[in-house]
Simulated assay, not measured.
Amino acid sequence: MMDEAVTLPNTNLKVGLDALLGLLPVVGDVGSAAIGAYILRAATRLGVPSVVIAQMLLNLLIDAVLGMVPIFGDYLDVLYKANVKNVALVERAIENRRTAAASSWLKLIGTFTAFALIVGGGIVGTVFVVKWLWNAM
């Protein structure tokens, strides 16, 4: 319901309550993350490995940060679908209890590295643009 409740007409794009909540500045993104935390609670009760839980938390963090981007945040939030990813992680962890932890470490490290590079690149890029604008004046 949060990520794929309705398919938009004439597209293959599915949206859910997460997109609607995201329209409310800050409160919507925080509320959406809180609802997404329910999946984390269920995963913990099911005995999902800690590394998978960490990956799920990272997915929620990325979703919340993307949702806070001015103007494009809601669109990015619709595309990322953290809740769908987290449910898939839980299902894989339950089906393949032995291999879930090992493969999740690689995915967690890769996802965190990509996220850190994107955020770091955004900060460095912003500094360069501000510096360039400052010198151009």
Rank of each mutant, 00 (worst) to 15 (best):
3 D>T: 05
4 E>W: 06
4 E>G: 06
5 A>R: 01
6 V>Q: 02
10 N>S: 13
13 L>T: 15
14 K>Q: 14
16 G>F: 05
16 G>L: 04
19 A>Q: 03
19 A>V: 08
20 L>F: 06
20 L>Y: 03
21 L>W: 04
21 L>V: 02
25 P>G: 13
27 V>W: 04
29 D>S: 10
30 V>M: 11
30 V>C: 04
33 A>E: 08
36 G>A: 11
37 A>I: 07
38 Y>H: 07
39 I>C: 10
41 R>W: 11
44 T>F: 03
44 T>G: 04
44 T>M: 06
45 R>I: 02
45 R>M: 01
46 L>D: 09
47 G>H: 10
49 P>T: 06
53 I>E: 02
53 I>K: 03
54 A>L: 13
55 Q>E: 09
55 Q>K: 02
58 L>M: 10
59 N>V: 00
59 N>T: 00
62 I>Q: 04
62 I>R: 03
65 V>Y: 11
66 L>V: 12
67 G>K: 15
67 G>F: 15
68 M>Q: 12
71 I>G: 00
72 F>R: 06
74 D>V: 13
78 V>P: 09
79 L>Y: 08
79 L>M: 15
81 K>H: 07
82 A>Y: 09
83 N>R: 11
86 N>K: 05
88 A>I: 01
88 A>R: 08
89 L>R: 00
90 V>C: 10
91 E>Q: 08
92 R>A: 06
93 A>H: 05
93 A>F: 02
93 A>N: 00
94 I>Q: 14
94 I>F: 06
96 N>Y: 11
97 R>A: 15
97 R>S: 13
98 R>P: 04
99 T>V: 11
100 A>W: 03
101 A>Q: 15
101 A>T: 13
103 S>R: 06
103 S>W: 00
104 S>M: 08
105 W>V: 12
105 W>P: 01
109 I>W: 09
111 T>A: 15
111 T>K: 09
112 F>I: 06
113 T>S: 15
116 A>Q: 08
118 I>A: 12
118 I>Y: 07
121 G>M: 07
123 I>M: 06
125 G>H: 04
128 F>I: 01
128 F>D: 01
130 V>S: 00
131 K>T: 05
132 W>Q: 03
132 W>G: 00
136 A>W: 02
